[in-house]
Protein backbone atom coordinates (compact mmCIF):
# COMPACT_ATOMS: atom_id res chain seq x y z
CA UNK A 1 0.00 0.00 0.00
CA UNK A 2 1.58 3.27 -1.05
CA UNK A 3 1.65 5.73 1.81
CA UNK A 4 0.80 8.81 -0.28
CA UNK A 5 -1.87 7.25 -2.43
CA UNK A 6 -4.95 9.43 -2.88
CA UNK A 7 -8.09 8.29 -1.15
CA UNK A 8 -11.78 8.99 -1.27
CA UNK A 9 -14.12 8.53 1.72
CA UNK A 10 -15.12 5.23 0.13
CA UNK A 11 -11.65 3.75 -0.22
CA UNK A 12 -10.37 5.20 3.09
CA UNK A 13 -9.61 2.22 5.36
CA UNK A 14 -11.24 1.48 8.70
CA UNK A 15 -8.18 2.22 10.86
CA UNK A 16 -6.04 4.51 8.70
CA UNK A 17 -3.52 5.03 11.50
CA UNK A 18 -2.66 1.35 11.40
CA UNK A 19 -3.05 0.59 7.72
CA UNK A 20 0.67 0.62 6.87
CA UNK A 21 3.47 -1.25 8.64
CA UNK A 22 5.03 2.11 9.57
CA UNK A 23 1.71 3.20 11.03
CA UNK A 24 1.34 -0.03 12.92
CA UNK A 25 4.84 0.30 14.33
CA UNK A 26 4.27 3.87 15.38
CA UNK A 27 0.96 2.98 16.95
CA UNK A 28 2.45 0.22 19.08
CA UNK A 29 5.68 2.07 19.81
CA UNK A 30 3.77 5.08 20.99
CA UNK A 31 1.60 3.05 23.31
CA UNK A 32 4.73 1.52 24.80
CA UNK A 33 6.22 4.99 25.16
CA UNK A 34 3.10 6.03 27.04
CA UNK A 35 3.63 3.00 29.28
CA UNK A 36 7.07 4.39 30.14
CA UNK A 37 5.59 7.85 30.66
CA UNK A 38 3.07 6.33 33.05
CA UNK A 39 5.89 4.95 35.18
CA UNK A 40 7.57 8.35 35.02
CA UNK A 41 4.51 10.12 36.33
CA UNK A 42 3.91 7.38 38.89
CA UNK A 43 7.40 8.09 40.25
CA UNK A 44 6.64 11.80 40.40
CA UNK A 45 3.36 11.14 42.18
CA UNK A 46 5.13 8.91 44.70
CA UNK A 47 7.67 11.67 45.35
CA UNK A 48 4.95 14.25 45.76
CA UNK A 49 3.01 12.09 48.21
CA UNK A 50 6.18 11.42 50.21
CA UNK A 51 7.11 15.10 50.38
CA UNK A 52 3.66 16.64 50.69
CA UNK A 53 3.60 19.34 53.38
CA UNK A 54 7.25 18.67 54.24
CA UNK A 55 8.43 22.22 54.86
CA UNK A 56 11.37 23.69 56.77
CA UNK A 57 9.41 26.00 59.05
CA UNK A 58 5.81 26.43 60.22
CA UNK A 59 5.47 29.76 58.37
CA UNK A 60 5.67 27.97 55.06
CA UNK A 61 2.38 27.46 53.22
CA UNK A 62 0.92 23.95 53.21
CA UNK A 63 -1.29 22.27 50.64
CA UNK A 64 -4.50 23.23 52.37
CA UNK A 65 -3.48 26.91 52.45
CA UNK A 66 -2.60 27.05 48.78
CA UNK A 67 -5.09 25.34 46.59
CA UNK A 68 -8.28 27.00 45.36
CA UNK A 69 -10.74 24.56 43.93
CA UNK A 70 -12.71 26.91 41.62
CA UNK A 71 -9.66 27.67 39.50
CA UNK A 72 -8.55 24.06 39.39
CA UNK A 73 -12.08 23.01 38.50
CA UNK A 74 -12.09 25.38 35.54
CA UNK A 75 -8.71 24.00 34.44
CA UNK A 76 -10.00 20.45 34.70
CA UNK A 77 -13.06 21.28 32.65
CA UNK A 78 -10.95 22.97 29.97
CA UNK A 79 -8.69 19.97 29.64
CA UNK A 80 -11.45 17.38 29.72
CA UNK A 81 -13.38 19.28 27.07
CA UNK A 82 -10.26 19.46 24.93
CA UNK A 83 -9.99 15.70 25.23
CA UNK A 84 -13.53 15.41 23.89
CA UNK A 85 -12.85 17.78 21.00
CA UNK A 86 -9.78 15.78 20.00
CA UNK A 87 -12.03 12.70 19.93
CA UNK A 88 -14.24 14.59 17.47
CA UNK A 89 -11.19 15.39 15.41
CA UNK A 90 -10.22 11.73 15.23
CA UNK A 91 -13.81 10.82 14.38
CA UNK A 92 -13.57 13.10 11.35
CA UNK A 93 -10.15 11.74 10.51
CA UNK A 94 -11.61 8.25 10.33
CA UNK A 95 -14.37 9.58 8.09
CA UNK A 96 -11.83 11.23 5.82
CA UNK A 97 -13.08 14.73 6.54
CA UNK A 98 -9.89 16.73 6.66
CA UNK A 99 -11.41 20.18 7.11
CA UNK A 100 -13.56 19.25 10.09
CA UNK A 101 -10.68 17.39 11.64
CA UNK A 102 -8.47 20.46 11.41
CA UNK A 103 -11.24 22.58 12.87
CA UNK A 104 -11.70 20.36 15.90
CA UNK A 105 -7.97 20.12 16.42
CA UNK A 106 -7.85 23.91 16.40
CA UNK A 107 -10.54 24.01 19.09
CA UNK A 108 -8.52 21.49 21.08
CA UNK A 109 -5.45 23.68 20.85
CA UNK A 110 -7.38 26.76 21.97
CA UNK A 111 -8.77 24.93 25.00
CA UNK A 112 -5.29 23.67 25.80
CA UNK A 113 -3.93 27.20 25.64
CA UNK A 114 -6.67 28.27 28.02
CA UNK A 115 -5.55 25.58 30.45
CA UNK A 116 -1.96 26.67 30.13
CA UNK A 117 -2.92 30.28 30.84
CA UNK A 118 -4.71 29.24 34.03
CA UNK A 119 -1.72 27.22 35.13
CA UNK A 120 0.66 30.10 34.61
CA UNK A 121 -1.70 32.33 36.59
CA UNK A 122 -1.86 29.70 39.34
CA UNK A 123 1.91 29.34 39.66
CA UNK A 124 2.34 33.08 39.64
CA UNK A 125 -0.26 33.40 42.34
CA UNK A 126 1.47 30.89 44.64
CA UNK A 127 4.76 32.54 44.00
CA UNK A 128 3.69 36.05 44.92
CA UNK A 129 0.99 35.43 47.48
CA UNK A 130 2.51 32.58 49.45
CA UNK A 131 6.20 32.71 48.64
CA UNK A 132 5.74 29.10 47.58
CA UNK A 133 8.66 28.91 45.15
CA UNK A 134 10.52 26.03 43.54
CA UNK A 135 13.32 26.39 46.08
CA UNK A 136 11.39 27.23 49.23
CA UNK A 137 10.79 23.69 50.53
CA UNK A 138 10.83 20.02 49.66
CA UNK A 139 7.06 20.24 49.31
CA UNK A 140 7.23 23.09 46.81
CA UNK A 141 9.97 21.36 44.79
CA UNK A 142 7.84 18.23 44.55
CA UNK A 143 4.70 20.20 43.69
CA UNK A 144 6.26 22.28 40.93
CA UNK A 145 8.10 19.28 39.52
CA UNK A 146 4.98 17.12 39.27
CA UNK A 147 2.59 19.79 38.03
CA UNK A 148 5.34 21.46 36.01
CA UNK A 149 6.23 18.21 34.24
CA UNK A 150 2.61 17.92 33.29
CA UNK A 151 2.61 21.54 32.15
CA UNK A 152 5.69 20.85 30.01
CA UNK A 153 3.83 17.93 28.48
CA UNK A 154 0.94 20.26 27.68
CA UNK A 155 3.28 22.69 25.96
CA UNK A 156 4.91 19.90 24.01
CA UNK A 157 1.52 18.42 23.11
CA UNK A 158 0.21 21.75 21.87
CA UNK A 159 3.32 22.40 19.81
CA UNK A 160 3.03 18.96 18.33
CA UNK A 161 -0.64 19.41 17.40
CA UNK A 162 0.09 22.78 15.81
CA UNK A 163 3.07 21.35 13.96
CA UNK A 164 1.15 18.48 12.39
CA UNK A 165 -1.76 20.77 11.55
CA UNK A 166 0.48 23.26 9.78
CA UNK A 167 2.72 20.78 8.01
CA UNK A 168 -0.21 18.78 6.67
CA UNK A 169 -2.46 21.72 5.88
CA UNK A 170 -1.70 21.33 2.16
CA UNK A 171 -1.01 17.61 2.16
CA UNK A 172 -4.38 16.54 3.51
CA UNK A 173 -5.09 13.06 4.73
CA UNK A 174 -3.33 9.95 3.52
CA UNK A 175 -1.85 6.88 5.12
CA UNK A 176 1.39 8.75 5.76
CA UNK A 177 -0.20 11.67 7.60
CA UNK A 178 -3.03 9.84 9.38
CA UNK A 179 -0.76 8.17 11.99
CA UNK A 180 0.81 11.55 12.75
CA UNK A 181 -2.56 13.07 13.62
CA UNK A 182 -3.58 10.01 15.51
CA UNK A 183 -0.49 9.91 17.70
CA UNK A 184 -0.61 13.60 18.50
CA UNK A 185 -4.18 13.18 19.64
CA UNK A 186 -3.32 10.04 21.61
CA UNK A 187 -0.62 12.01 23.38
CA UNK A 188 -3.16 14.69 24.16
CA UNK A 189 -5.46 12.12 25.76
CA UNK A 190 -2.63 10.84 27.86
CA UNK A 191 -1.95 14.34 29.15
CA UNK A 192 -5.61 14.65 30.11
CA UNK A 193 -5.57 11.35 31.98
CA UNK A 194 -2.51 12.43 33.93
CA UNK A 195 -4.28 15.65 34.82
CA UNK A 196 -7.23 13.72 36.24
CA UNK A 197 -4.81 12.06 38.62
CA UNK A 198 -3.15 15.36 39.49
CA UNK A 199 -6.57 16.85 40.16
CA UNK A 200 -7.41 14.00 42.50
CA UNK A 201 -4.10 13.35 44.23
CA UNK A 202 -2.75 16.87 44.45
CA UNK A 203 -5.75 19.15 44.66
CA UNK A 204 -8.68 17.14 46.05
CA UNK A 205 -6.54 15.21 48.52
CA UNK A 206 -4.70 18.43 49.31
CA UNK A 207 -7.94 20.16 50.24
CA UNK A 208 -9.03 17.46 52.65
CA UNK A 209 -5.67 17.61 54.36
Amino acid sequence: MEAEEKYTPQTWPESPERATLEGKNKFLGFWLFLGGETVLFASLFATYIALKDKVPSPEHALAKDLYELPLVFVMTMLLLTSSLTSVYAMYHMKNFNFKKMQLWLLITVILGLGFLGCEIYEFNHYYHEYNHTFTSSAFSSAFYTLVGFHGAHVIFGLSWLVLVMVRNAKRGLNLYTAPKFYLASLYWHFIDVVWVFIFTVVYLMGMVG
Partner: peptide, 11 residues
Protein backbone atom coordinates in the same frame (compact mmCIF):
# COMPACT_ATOMS: atom_id res chain seq x y z
CA UNK B 1 15.31 22.38 44.70
CA UNK B 2 15.02 20.56 48.02
CA UNK B 3 14.04 16.97 47.31
CA UNK B 4 16.93 15.52 49.28
CA UNK B 5 17.66 18.46 51.54
CA UNK B 6 16.61 17.23 54.98
CA UNK B 7 16.76 20.72 56.48
CA UNK B 8 14.08 21.91 54.05
CA UNK B 9 11.84 18.87 54.55
CA UNK B 10 13.51 16.64 51.96
CA UNK B 11 14.17 12.94 52.23
Amino acid sequence: ANFFNVAAGGN
